[in-house]
Design a binder for these strands. Structure first.
Length: 865
RNA sequence: GGGCGUUUAGCUCAGUUGGCUAGAGCGCCGCCCUUACAAGGCGGAAGUCGAGGGUUCGAGUCCCCCAACGCCCA
């Protein structure tokens, strides 16, 4: 074995072995209970970022452990066709050649996207392999593959037949850059600086004018009314009158509407039903016309008079200056206002009256809320449930049609002759109403999230009742970031409960976001992003995984720095060397997958085995609760400080003892084996590599999870460790050279065995001897080891007696402080009355112990001379 | 405006039913190349747990209030 661990050499090799051995398939545990996770599908054109690395590390820990526990564990991988994102990428490619998608045409364009997918779609999969994701590649799915497309069609048609899918003219959010409608959730609202323009609209009866304030003056071209609050005293007389719309010379009415906020602007607002959702409602209530004055290119339409053809922002200025010319502007104020931006390309979205398809959500939310309320699905951490409920209870109908080409085309046909709408699973060939064969298919495709919403069941074969669907649905655990609870989790819940009558997963594990050290979100544009693949190349995948897992407290964001990863790498190296030492120097050979405990373990062996089992049990509980960072923090510390720093050091002296060497070897084998097993889900590569030195030729990935029952612990180890530490501290504080002998007289209430003395000698590099308490402690220092064990060291010839005095004084001061606290506590009569018996008696015992200790130290100080 | 989160060592963070002397990694100081690992070992210093109030025998932990920062929704 190399003296240092070389991850790059090891990782690719083991991944191949795992994959080729079929270890990622649930079939490796044919009799196991099913346990499944579907991956949150990354965008097919995407590249892996730290968020994925975190998300995948967590899922891999969960699935690898379940696999080792004997479950038929399935982690289903796949990708999302990511409508807008992917289409944008390919359009960008086209633009380099000076082309648009319209130049190449719909079919050719889609072919080009597929070609792109074929070329770059493997990127993500290969990056996942680098991370070590134990996904079952034989079950890999794509939201746009045949099976999933069939599921999408069925859901669309069923929803339509149930009256839950409808087409309507509504104000939707339109992205003029992506050229498509967006759902509410795809719009990011930001407070942008702007101006509030106050425009005077003259009454037609000549009785002056009414002033309205607007942040979007260009929309006045489409005004068809003025609205005031009916209770607003200022405008009581205005309601019912008409005004003349400046520039357009259109007579429009003033209406009273409860929806108007009286304290905004002048309290009177212009009504543009075609370009504002609230205005649309007002318009509907008062029978006002909708005039579309801004088109899908965000340019002024022919209905915009002299401004026809102008861009919306150009028109804003032009309208304002024309209004100024006719003296229709009262004033212009600076004004911060919320502006919607496309979450894809950040272009300012335009509210637009448009004919789109919508999912009626009322009927879907109730059962989806109930599934969480009755714990069929539970969020971890639980507090996310509140966000989920709040979101679900305030949902608007979901606009699902997108004016894109890349996506699931809407299965609706319109009859050219009678106008009938035909929605069907199979392509329609004739009109169901008039029989005409002149049909036109809807041009639009579905929101990407529509197919994602079906992911947990569509990937398993639904709507067919496949074996996989029967076996693995509903899935066990979903692991995802809080940022897509609304986009994805909520929609999966709605669709799954509606179509399968079951919640799609029982545990929804929400993790935070990976951030940089200043707490900023990592992004390519701000240049603070760490690239997981670069980090893997530098530190190894295990190090990246372990750092993320240890840092990821449930539901909290993770500030990540390469220092964390470096610490993990050092751990990997430590583990490597511990194993190398065990195998090469301690001659630990093959151990069986199970059992293998020494028949007659020595006390050191019994101790580390009992600790191993105790820690294994705690880790198991923590992992069941998805507290991965706690579990692996615990294991990290156990392995390093107890196994490596203590037991391995003990083992060095045991190796020279014929009677003890075999038991030690067996113990060391068992301990390292179980440490590898426990660590494997987090750091699969290095553990698998090390296992090959220890194991019986089997693979660690499918080895049985450790035994977590408890074992008794011999009581002598604690005082042994304490005495050793005390001697080391003494040496260190007095700068006693390593080579100098330190004689320690060990005094114990009960006799201490030889092995104990030998360990003290070897671990503290001292010469201990059992003896009587010195008749006079003068010229000695006293080391307390608890459990009735003390050590005395003669100072003569070793250290200056005076140098010892501050040491003792400090020890006394420390005990005095703690003693005072405890005494005060006990002196409080209600403490004894109200605190539980064991707490009180423990406190009494402490006081007693501290008194004894204090007494001894004081005597020592007095006699020091 | 509503909701959520964060505030603990120099830095970044753990600390889940309230209960021994509040932990880790990194950094810092001292000693050590002791038969794996100097990417290491041993030892050490370092915290009024954001401020204030309350409940309790007992509060980093529960309640109230305030402040700063961050996120989500409107």
């Amino acid at each position: 074995m190399n003296p240092t661990y070389q991850p790059d050499e090891v990782e690719a090799r083991w991944y191949k072995v795992w994959e080729e051995s079929g270890s990622f398939r649930p079939e490796v545990n044919p009799d196991g209970e099913p346990f499944s996770i579907v991956i949150p599908p990354p965008n097919v054109t995407g590249v892996l970022h730290m968020g994925h690395a975190l998300d995948h590390a967590i899922q891999d820990v969960v699935i690898r452990r379940k696999r080792m526990q004997g479950f038929a564990a399935l982690w289903l991988p796949g990708t999302d066709h990511a409508g807008i994102a992917t289409q944008n990428v390919v359009e960008r490619e086209l633009r380099k050649e000076g082309l648009t998608r319209h130049d190449v045409g719909r079919e050719a364009f889609i072919e080009q996207v597929w070609a792109w997918k074929a070329k770059s779609g493997d990127t993500i999969a290969n990056q996942m392999r680098k991370l070590g994701d134990s996904t079952d590649w034989s079950r890999e799915r794509f939201t746009f593959d045949e099976g999933l497309s069939a599921a999408v069609r069925k859901v669309f048609v069923d929803l339509y037949d149930e009256g839950l899918m409808y087409r309507a003219n509504r104000i939707i959010n339109w992205c003029p850059r992506c050229h498509t409608a967006l759902s509410e959730i795809e719009v990011e609202h930001e407070d942008d600086p702007g101006e509030l323009t106050y425009i005077r609209y003259p009454f037609t009866d000549g009785s002056g004018f009414i002033t309205v304030a607007t942040t979007r003056p260009e929309t006045m071209l489409g005004d068809t009314g003025i609205a005031v609050h009916p209770d607003d005293e200022r405008y009581k007389d205005a309601i019912g009158k008409t005004v003349m719309l400046p520039l357009m010379d259109r007579e429009i009415p003033v209406v009273g509407d409860e929806g108007v906020e009286s304290d905004f602007g002048t309290g009177a607002v212009k009504v543009t039903p075609a370009h504002d959702p609230l205005d649309f409602e007002i318009g509907k209530r008062h029978g006002l016309k909708s005039i579309i004055v801004i088109d899908t290119e965000a340019k002024i339409t022919a209905d915009g008079g002299e401004f026809f053809g102008m861009d919306r922002f150009e028109a804003r200025e032009a309208v304002r200056s024309r209004l100024r010319e006719i003296d229709a502007i009262e004033k212009i104020e600076e004004h911060q206002h919320s502006v919607g931006h496309c979450s894809r390309c950040h272009t300012v979205v335009e509210p637009l009256l448009s004919l789109q398809w919508f999912v009626k959500v009322d009927a879907l939310v109730g059962p989806a809320i109930d599934a969480v309320r009755n714990d069929e699905s539970r969020f971890i951490p639980k507090r996310w449930e509140k966000n989920y409920f709040h979101w679900m209870e305030n949902l608007q109908d979901w606009c699902v049609s997108r004016q894109l080409w890349w996506g699931h085309r809407i299965p609706a046909w319109y009859c050219d002759d009678c106008g009938e709408t035909i929605v069907s699973i199979d392509d329609a060939v004739s009109c169901t109403a008039c029989g005409s064969s002149k049909l036109t298919r809807d041009d639009d495709v579905l929101d990407t999230w529509f197919s994602s919403a079906l992911w947990p069941f569509s990937t398993l074969g639904w709507p067919d009742q496949t074996d996989d669907f029967e076996k693995f649905y509903p899935t066990a655990t979903l692991v995802t970031g809080f940022d897509i609870i609304f986009f994805w989790v909520a929609r999966m819940m709605k669709m799954a409960v509606h179509f399968t009558d079951q919640a799609p997963f029982s545990d929804i594990v929400i993790h935070g976001m990976v951030r940089d050290m200043s707490g900023k979100k990592m992004s390519k544009s701000s240049g603070n992003a760490l690239d997981p693949l670069e980090l893997i190349a530098e530190y190894g995948a295990d190090s990246v995984r372990l750092a993320l897992i240890q840092a990821a407290a449930p539901g909290h964001d993770i500030p990540l720095d390469t220092e964390w990863i470096d610490a993990s790498r050092r751990f990997g190296n430590k583990l490597w060397n511990a194993m190398r030492f065990a195998v090469e120097f301690m001659r630990v050979s093959k151990v069986p997958q199970d059992g293998g405990y020494p028949e007659d373990p020595g006390p050191e062996d019994a101790w580390i085995l009992s600790r191993l089992h105790e820690v294994s049990g705690e880790i198991d509980t923590l992992l069941d609760e998805y507290r991965l960072s706690d579990a692996y923090g615990l294991l990290y510390n156990f392995a390093w400080s107890e196994v490596f720093d203590w037991y391995l050091e003990m083992a060095k002296s045991l190796a020279n003892d014929e009677d003890r060497a075999d038991s030690m070897r067996q113990t060391l084998g068992v301990v390292l084996r179980d440490v590898l097993k426990l660590f494997h889900p987090a750091i699969p590569f290095v553990t698998e590599e090390l296992w090959s030195n220890l194991g019986d030729g089997s693979l660690l990935i499918t080895a049985p999870w450790p035994d977590v029952s408890t074992r008794p612990c011999p009581p002598e180890i604690a005082p042994l460790q304490e005495l050793v530490s005390a001697i080391r501290r003494f040496r260190s504080q007095h700068h006693i050279p390593h080579k100098s002998d330190v004689h320690v007289t060990v005094v114990s209430e009960s006799p201490l065995p030889d092995w104990w003395m030998r360990q003290v000698a070897s671990l503290s590099n001292s010469i201990p001897a059992a003896g009587e308490r010195p008749t006079s402690v003068a010229g000695h220092t006293r080391l307390s080891a608890g459990a009735g064990v003390e050590g005395f060291i003669e100072l003569e010839g070793l250290v200056d007696v005076d140098a010892e005095r501050p040491r003792i004084e400090k020890a006394i001061a420390e005990v005095e402080t703690n003693l005072a606290k405890s005494v005060a506590k006990l002196a409080n009569p209600s403490f004894a009355d109200r605190a539980p018996e064991e707490v009180v008696s423990a406190e009494r015992a402490r006081v007693e112990q501290m008194n004894v200790e204090l007494d001894k130290q004081r005597t020592l100080l007095a006699e020091l001379g």
